[in-house]
Simulated scan of single mutants.
Amino acid sequence: MSREDFRRLTLHKKIQILYTDATFVVAIRYYSHKVNLYLWENEYVEVFYNHKLDKIDKIDFLNRRHSRMKFYLDQIQISI
């Protein structure tokens, strides 16, 4: 499945795919979210969970240029 195909899926379908086919890597706190990082088909995918609202706000591929990368780099081996 391509990145664009994944992005077009419903939130529920993305969750299902990550739960069944991906590997959990690490969780970080980022402002009001707990962000879970998964490895799926050689791609890193972030799941943004808003614990105050008890809901997932966003699921998308890891942006390796984002400042959030500093939270991951000491825990995983990834090239920017």
Rank of each mutant, 00 (worst) to 15 (best):
T10Y: 05
T10F: 03
L11N: 03
K14Q: 08
K14W: 01
K14H: 00
K14N: 05
Q16S: 15
L18F: 03
L18I: 09
Y19A: 15
D21V: 02
D21L: 14
T23M: 14
F24G: 05
V25M: 13
V26G: 05
V26H: 12
A27F: 03
I28L: 07
I28N: 03
R29W: 09
Y30K: 13
Y30F: 14
Y31C: 08
S32F: 12
S32Y: 12
S32P: 08
H33L: 07
K34C: 08
K34P: 02
K34V: 13
N36P: 00
N36G: 06
Y38S: 04
V45W: 02
E46I: 01
E46L: 08
E46D: 03
V47E: 05
Y49I: 03
N50E: 07
K52M: 07
D54E: 14
D54S: 10
K55M: 01
I56F: 03
I56A: 01
I59E: 01
I59T: 03
D60W: 02
F61E: 06
F61Y: 12
L62A: 00
N63V: 06
N63Y: 06
R64I: 13
R65W: 13
R65I: 07
S67W: 11
L73C: 12
L73I: 10
D74W: 06
D74G: 06
Q75G: 00
Q77D: 15
